[in-house]
Write a protein that binds this DNA or RNA. Structure first.
Lengths: 347, 347
DNA sequence: TAAACTCGTTGAAACGTTCTCCGAATCAGG
DNA sequence: CCTGATTCGGAGAACGTTTCAACGAGTTTA
């Protein structure tokens, strides 16, 4: 940056330009654009006119520097190429922009190393808050955010120690509906393709499934519990493993929709039909699920609700108001029946 | 922000803390962490030690304020829920983070209004550069960026006035391969479902198609030129319109893969088979295209190439080096044959 | 031996805001 | 018309950094 008296030209458009054009002090301009009520209406009008004519807008860096608030929010997700997350991002962005925030996105790709890098990026940009929408998070990262007084929201299963920065999801409800649906159709041999199990919430989905299966009076078969990785490839590979088994299940539940789509692909490749040969249930209800062939029966977790709950909670922590932070309702899940489930093949 | 002498406590971790701990001036600290070569090795070591012990990192707001560089890059896309864009974002993010930049994402949802809002957001955060990866952009927005000396990169068709801030895509090459492929299979009746035609590059894809069709000696039929909107729904609706026609085409080309997936859905609903009843070709080659049922034959536009070319060009404009900005090669496109094309039904 | 140069370090100004404090202006009541 | 209350505008410090100008200690030259 040039330090010379005036570096020649370019008297950069600043609050000062507005002040002089409106013939008021810079303080008055500042108060006007920050909607402080005590400012005289006549002057305010002059200020707004000047702002408009100059097409001025405040320098957010300077604002951030002095206020200590960057108006930046971090959003850490697992994998941006999994359509569930873009849908989530879209909701986040909407709410954030409405409230004057921008979003910094970090994609971990399921690697703890990358997760750490993302967290560091968030730190360096001094985000005002972070939403961690991955399937799990390391404790030490949470601690680090906490030690910097950065509010953090993350997803987890409902717990009896309701720390309000946890957004709890009731995975069981939807999975239970799914299992019941399958049982009602006559399925007794149900496989489950999980997500990467080192992630808490992937594990939570799997335990919910096992729990439900037992409640339905079905004894789970270890052979039919496959670990996937929440990707298309993972779903395909897992299904191929299942097909290689001597004793086949009649229905497959998946930890997310991408896995289910991978399964559909594997079955198509093997010339097997859904739902005639296998029933299939996904999880998430991404928009695409309605468009698979055949349309996917899946457990819906409203990412709209999720994003809004996360944002509400995050923002309420940023602007401490008198209204108490209400204990968050758990996010609910429910079955959406489409066309990948049917009675088991009479074998 | 409290203005009282010391607001009690919290002597915020700053470059000053490091300076006093390393027993040097803040200027020396600054030069050290910015890798200015003239700094004495002994002092540098002391500084790095202090940095490490305090776990210090510089405040990016302050940096941005004084340097005039926000190290923020804008990325404006059409629609984050179209999987093509997340794939693009992923590449962008990778390159950007490597170079110390963060990305601000704006999704226009094809609305000029929203596009304007996005541009404004970018302005307010004083991004150092913007990549506009939508299917078109208003001239006045480009002008505004230009008047603020913000480098802009956007996509367009190859033109004889190669302004280096245009990333040109050779849509024709891939579409030509697609048309030839169909013609070779015996198709003479080919429909095209375009994107929203107010967008330049959607229009470009359509003209490329018309051009290729004529070159292949086929007379295009106006009835088979449907305007879609690059979404699943748009593809489905367009296909339903086509199915209502008295004279049916035998093959469908789509302006993007999402449209093609919508077409597959409409055909599935109508109990029509691909490729037996209709051949289908998409555009983009999103990752999902390999996983549709049947796997989608499509024109590949490497979003990796696209993102990297965009970033390279953008970054080279940010750090003007001696090495001349090479004239960008147009991004190429090519056909990927999978299983949605076959000979036309003998009617 | 003093002057002229280097080299490396430091103090201080500047970036564009916000916000506190204080002085000036306005107004109502006596 | 004067006093006290009230309201509003302006000067200036502070935020955390970068970088310029200046300075001090060595080193070389006259």
């Amino acid at each position: 940056m040039k330090r010379s008296p005036n570096q020649g030209f370019t008297p950069r458009l600043s609050i000062r330009s507005v002040a002089s054009r409106a013939r008021v002090s810079i303080a008055t301009v500042s108060r006007t654009i920050n909607h402080v009520s005590t400012v005289n209406a006549v002057l305010a009008a002059r200020v707004w006119k000047a702002v408009d004519e100059l097409n001025y807008f405040p320098n957010s860096q300077a604002r951030a520097l002095v206020s200590g608030k960057s108006k930046l929010l971090g959003l850490i997700i697992s994998e941006i190429t999994n359509p569930f997350f873009p849908e989530l991002i879209q909701e986040f962005e909407k709410v954030a922009v409405e409230r004057g925030y921008e979003i910094l996105i970090g994609s971990t790709n399921y690697e703890p190393k990358t997760m750490e890098l993302c967290a560091r990026r968030m730190f360096e940009r001094q985000v005002d808050g972070v939403a961690i929408m991955t399937f799990g998070i390391e404790q030490f990262l949470l601690d680090r955010f906490a030690s910097d007084d950065v509010p953090v929201i993350f997803i987890d299963i409902p717990s009896k120690h309701p720390r309000s920065d946890i957004l709890s999801v009731d995975y069981r409800a939807g999975i239970w509906e799914g299992v019941q649906h399958l049982a009602a159709l006559g399925h007794r041999k149900v496989a489950f393709i999980s997500g990467p199990l080192q992630h808490r919430s992937a594990g939570a989905r799997k335990s919910a499934f096992l729990d439900c299966i037992r409640c339905a009076g079905i004894k789970p078969n270890q052979k039919w519990l496959i670990e996937g990785n929440h990707t298309l490839e993972g779903g395909r590979d897992a299904m191929q493993k299942i097909l290689a088994l001597p004793d086949l299940p009649t229905a497959i539940m998946c930890s997310n929709d991408m896995t289910a789509i991978g399964v559909q692909h594997a079955l198509f490749d093997a010339s097997l039909k859904i739902p005639e040969d296998f029933s299939l249930i996904g999880f998430d209800d991404i928009h695409l699920a309605e468009y698979t062939i055949p349309p996917l029966t899946t457990v819906q977790m409203s990412c709209k609700d999720l994003a809004q709950a996360a944002m509400t909670s995050l923002l309420s922590r940023l602007q401490p108001r008198k209204d108490k932070v209400e204990p968050e309702e758990p996010i609910t899940t429910r079955l959406v029946v489409r066309r990948t489930t049917g009675p088991p093949k009479a074998s």
